[in-house]
Nucleic acid binder design. Structure first.
Length: 466
DNA sequence: CTATGGCACGGATT
DNA sequence: AATCCGTGCCATAG
């Protein structure tokens, strides 16, 4: 959004500037949105232009999103830049969605949050021409996360083949509250089962039981189901137990918990990324695109009319207006500063941690904020603020705290886990130290013990009998 | 004597 | 200035 401004003009000039930049830097995109809206409302000198320009080619964009024309010239042309940074507005409320139906009744906050959440996940995979349709589908989610309009109707409404709508739905169903966007609880369960099957064993007849005996299942008439499917009642009971423990017929209700990994003790669920990282065109080029989400639609600037208006005002009001003007331009400058810092930060991180981003936890490089700060030439507290409280969505769809990029022990812990799961004989902590050292991880014996504890692995003496 | 968990110190982070 | 994390030292359990 502000890339065209040369960096040297962005240096903090006053302490006020510095302070406000710091504050803005530590805000997540949600908070930033509130901040901007508040400032916009209280300061007449600020103005919001209803237009967006492509960060790379400066071309005016209509629908928002990424410039369709230059699209990714930076990506296709040159091959050395591993990372391409662009900023993109967050579609709050998805821009304008077709005429009537969405402007009435202010849908409850919960529903909208779920919709927004899902939209952010699937947005990279939705072709621009299908975005409106996606938004339409999402606004028709009920609070259970189920779709309340028939797909055929949507297809008709948008004049597209049914298959296209179905594709979109399939995409949605794979997004985080798995099964979201299904038409019925039954469908939701089947999708969840499918996804679960990729990582875990599921009971043999689970899908048949759901398919055939959904209604009976909710009435607990296991015997009847067994008869129809020609199975033993016990088997049906086992399936029913599995279903009630692992699946959720109302995906929307699982919004706050991720039931995919009941084993992983996640402390907090991040559901709104501030930054998106994705592969470019999933080719082998392995180029990464980093998008720093900017929470408003439009371009913020100081209103030139306001500047003129000052000239024609009485002296006694001039001062107050001048002050507004000052504040406005300061605010814009601070925003530019924030954007610039985030961008350079992500640039660096993308370079250093590309293996982590592409290939998973194991390849996380231990980087300290201090080193990065030095390389970027900013104070380390700046990095701290920028990193804190923000979340990143990785190419695989996982949303992790930005701070994870600085986790000193994550990769060591993964390797540790690998060693232990493949061990043939319970290894003591000191032996583990030795093995880890071979893999390039120099850690103290005492530390291995702590990692074990973190991962919930028992000491060697208690590990075998299982 | 070996394997672990507890406590405290020092550097990094906030 | 307050807090978190990796380590070293020491006591305790086999």
């Amino acid at each position: 959004m502000f890339q065209h401004i040369p960096f040297h003009t962005l240096r903090p000039l006053t302490t006020a500037h510095l302070a406000q930049t710091m504050t803005l830097l530590s805000l997540t995109s949600n908070e930033l949105q509130e901040q901007i809206e508040a400032e916009l409302a209280s300061n007449p000198a600020l103005e919001m232009l209803d237009e967006i320009r492509c960060p790379t080619c400066r071309r005016l964009l209509k629908g928002g999103g990424i410039c369709p024309v230059c699209s990714h010239p930076a990506l296709t042309k040159e091959d050395d830049p591993i990372v391409f940074v662009s900023t993109r507005e967050v579609v709050s409320g998805f821009g304008e969605v077709g005429g009537e139906d969405d402007r009435e009744e202010s849908s409850s906050a919960v529903v909208e949050d779920l919709a927004t959440y899902v939209f952010r996940q699937i947005a990279p995979d939705v072709p621009p021409e299908d975005r409106k349709m996606a938004a339409h589908l999402l606004t028709n989610l009920d609070e259970d996360g189920l779709l309340s309009v028939p797909l055929a109707e949507v297809a008709m409404y948008f004049h597209v083949p049914l298959a296209r709508v179905e594709n979109l739905q399939r995409l949605m169903q794979r997004a985080d509250p798995i099964g979201v966007g299904s038409l019925t609880p039954k469908e939701a369960l089947l999708v969840q089962l499918d996804v679960l099957r990729e990582t875990r064993d599921v009971p043999e007849y689970a899908s048949q039981v759901i398919l055939e005996g959904m209604e009976l299942l909710s009435r607990r008439q296991y015997h009847e189901i067994a008869k129809r499917l020609n199975l033993s009642t016990d088997k049906v009971k086992a399936v029913a137990k599995f279903i009630s423990e692992n699946l959720n017929p109302f995906p929307g209700r699982s919004f706050w918990g991720d039931f995919r990994q009941p084993s992983a003790p996640q402390t907090q669920i991040y559901y709104r990324p501030d930054i998106l990282i994705s592969r470019i065109n999933d080719t082998n080029s392995c180029q990464l695109m980093v998008e720093i989400l900017f929470p408003i639609w439009g371009t913020l600037r100081v209103n030139p009319l306001y500047r003129q208006a000052i000239q024609q005002t009485e002296a006694d009001q001039k001062d107050a207006m001048k002050e507004d003007l000052e504040r406005a331009s300061l605010f814009v400058k601070c925003l530019q500063q924030r954007n610039n810092t985030m961008q350079r930060l992500m640039q660096k991180i993308g370079l250093l941690q590309r293996n982590f981003i592409l290939h998973g936890d194991k390849y996380l490089r231990p980087i300290t904020r201090a080193t990065l700060a030095k390389e970027l030439g900013v104070h380390e507290s700046t990095i701290s603020r920028a990193v804190a409280n923000k979340a990143v969505q990785l190419p695989n769809g996982k949303i992790v705290p930005l701070a994870d990029f600085f986790d000193r022990s994550l990769s060591a812990r993964i390797v540790l886990k690998e060693i232990i799961t493949s061990e043939s004989h319970p290894l003591s902590d000191s032996e583990l130290v030795h093995l880890l050292a071979k893999e390039g991880y120099e850690v103290a014996r005492r530390t291995v013990a702590k990692y074990r504890a973190m991962e919930g692995i028992l000491p060697a003496s208690l590990r075998r009998p299982c």
